[in-house]
């Protein structure tokens, strides 16, 4: 399995299944939300760096350097334009067609998930519920 798939599988092990009894503690739920975000972050960074640097084994090192260039905030900022369909003027000429519904959905989900991760990791007053973790996964 790939890293994103492994991370999601890890999330699933932290939570009781649907219709199962059980109430995970706040630490488990926060870790689950954070891990779900990292699954998506890893997937997007891997896909983008593979596209930019190439997917062959000989490009492993370059792909690794390219992957390090992605930042959480910049990715979320970029997602704003894609999700809202109001791209930065400089980016518009780079697109071959209009932004697809799927891409808008991915962008909106990434930003929403990043906020959830931010709350989970840095907001000590936040007490997530099982639905928050399931929504993140």
């Amino acid at each position: 399995m790939s890293l994103p798939q492994n991370l999601l599988a890890l999330c699933e092990t932290m939570l009781p299944g649907q219709n199962q009894r059980g109430r995970p503690d706040a630490a488990t739920l926060k870790r689950c939300i954070s891990t779900a975000y990292y699954a998506v972050f890893s997937l997007l960074v891997h896909a983008a760096s593979s596209m930019l640097a190439g997917n062959s084994a000989g490009r492993n090192e370059l792909r690794g350097y390219v992957a390090r260039a992605f930042s959480h905030n910049e990715m979320a900022e970029a997602c704003k334009g894609f999700a809202g369909g109001n791209l930065n003027k400089r980016l518009k000429p780079c697109l071959q067609s209009s932004i697809s519904t799927d891409l808008k959905d991915i962008a909106a989900t990434f930003r929403s998930l990043q906020q959830s991760r931010h709350d989970a990791d840095y907001n000590i007053l936040q007490k997530p519920k099982k639905t928050d973790a399931r929504q993140a996964i």
Binding site: K80, R111, S112, Q115, L125, K127, K129, K130, T131, D132
Partner: peptide, 30 residues
């Protein structure tokens, strides 16, 4: 504005209210 939509069951929502009451002394910024 960006809109974040979060979901709760009634049970979870009631639990949130209780938790907030317990934690209200932590910070007025909550």
């Amino acid at each position: 504005r960006w809109v974040y939509v979060r979901f709760r069951t009634r049970e979870e929502d009631a639990d949130t209210d209780e938790d907030n009451d317990e934690d209200s002394s932590w910070s007025d910024d909550s």
